[in-house]
Write a protein that binds this DNA or RNA. Structure first.
Length: 416
DNA sequence: TCTGGGGTCCTAGGACCC
DNA sequence: TCTGGGGTCCTAGGACCC
């Protein structure tokens, strides 16, 4: 059987780990720029707040209820996630990490006891070793395991473990809304509802040719998975990214070229850093800028893609290209709210097509290497291009950031 | 005042080939 | 009068995921 482990309200649980005083209290975690609510504790859900709600709309409600509010602290969450996955790996062997708070596991045939017992023990062990509450759903396929996991999170399942045996599939899927199935989003969900496909069981019974014709191969796989035929393979572990995006909204709108180009340089450098981490080169740089999409006046959004020939991993070349791009799309007279840099055409250097007409500058390569070395030893911001430096008055808002308890010597939790 | 960021895969359609 | 059939590769955009 395939199992899906999912951390309960993961970001909230990470914050609570170091703030046990918040265990009973409503807690929310905000997106970048403290924009939207992206994680909620059970108590916060009971206040009627939904994931994705803009913070400014619920701020007064949260304050009046004595809720704790946090900015996203990804450094902390990623570190806690690594710990959860490591413990999971000790218990189940191979783990397919699907997201920061989810992983698929297999129940090994030689494991003693029932699936329920093993998952229950694993849940307890993770909570004891790392301190994060998790849920397990087991079933014949990934899609069914996802559904089982959802069952495990319901109040009717206090153990937090749900094993969806084949014999129980019909009973469970008949009550399972089609719109809650993994792979059915809002668009397909609406389309299916209009045609009387209401439950997961309905989708399982629908004719395959009808699904293939009107929906897609992806939905056909979902349909097979609901029938118990595994159709979604494993993700390749450690596969290099095919596109690398760094973008961010500004904490205040920008009208001048200079701060905008500073921001674009910063994002380009961040993207180049991720590119270097996977030791690849990029063939294209896309730069985009846009005004506040929630405003009705003076909308402007444009992007441009420049070719890097030959492909490069050099942060200085990538920054320079991004700034060239910005000068092409920048227009005076607008208030910019967001910019971003996307790297694509990504390849490993071995696969690199050598450009016969341009010889690589050896000194520049040595410089790149030295810069990378410094960054990996002393942190990403220890050295940066001049164009990304200076004061970032537009920098992300993070008013409620918790300390990086587990990854920074200066921010270790104190026990008094 | 204030509305996230980062990915993946698939499909359709165009350009091009024989 | 009559205008094939089969491919590949690339890109943009859509839908979905967390």
């Amino acid at each position: 059987m395939i199992g899906l482990m999912d951390c309960n309200s993961f970001y909230v649980s990470c914050e609570r780990l170091f703030r046990p005083d918040l265990r009973e209290c409503p807690v929310v975690v905000l997106s970048n720029n403290d924009g939207c609510v992206v994680a909620l504790s059970r108590e916060a859900k009971q206040l009627g707040i939904r994931r994705g709600t803009p913070y400014f709309k619920v701020r007064s409600l949260l304050i009046s209820c004595g809720a704790a509010v946090f900015s996203s602290n990804y450094t902390l969450y990623q570190n806690i996630s690594n710990r959860v996955m490591a413990v999971l790996g000790e218990l189940f062997g191979e783990v397919e990490v699907y997201s920061i708070d989810e992983a698929f596991v297999h129940f090994p045939l030689d494991m003693p006891g029932s699936v329920e017992q093993a998952a229950g023990a694993a849940k307890e062990h993770i909570e004891r070793m790392v301190g994060i509450p998790v849920s397990f759903g087991f079933a014949r396929t990934k899609t069914l395991a996802k559904a089982a996991n959802r069952m495990a999170k319901q109040s009717s399942c206090p153990e937090g473990v749900y094993v969806l045996d084949e014999s129980r599939e019909e009973e469970v899927l008949r009550r399972f809304p089609v719109t809650d199935i993994w792979g059915i989003g809002s668009r397909k969900g609406r389309w299916l509802l209009q045609r009387g496909v209401v439950s997961a069981w309905d989708l399982r019974l629908a004719p395959s040719y009808w699904i293939k014709e009107h929906l897609s191969l992806v939905t056909l796989r979902t349909h097979w998975e609901l029938q118990g035929r595994p159709s979604i393979g494993p993700e390749t572990p450690g596969a290099p990214r095919k596109g690398i995006l760094s973008s961010q909204g500004f904490s205040r709108e920008i009208t001048e070229l200079f701060p905008l180009s500073q921001a674009v340089a910063t994002y380009a450098e961040r993207a180049a850093g991720k590119l270097n981490d996977q030791q690849s080169t990029a063939g294209y740089v896309t730069v985009f800028v846009r005004t506040n999409r929630f405003r009705h006046d003076l909308q402007y959004a444009r992007e441009v893609t420049l070719r890097l020939d030959p492909p490069t991993g050099s942060s200085t070349e990538i920054v320079a290209a991004a700034q060239r791009g910005l000068r092409i799309i920048f227009r005076e007279g607008y208030s910019y709210a967001k910019a971003g840099v996307l790297l694509s055409g990504i390849d490993l250097p071995e696969a690199l097509q050598q450009n016969l007409f341009i010889s690589r500058d050896d000194r520049r390569q040595r410089l790149e290497l030295a810069v990378q070395q410094l960054k990996s030893n002393y942190g990403r911001r220890v050295i940066h291009t001049l164009s990304s430096g200076g004061e970032h008055s537009w920098a992300m808002r993070q008013e409620y950031l918790s300390p990086r308890y587990t990854t920074n010597w200066k921010e270790l939790p104190m026990v008094r």
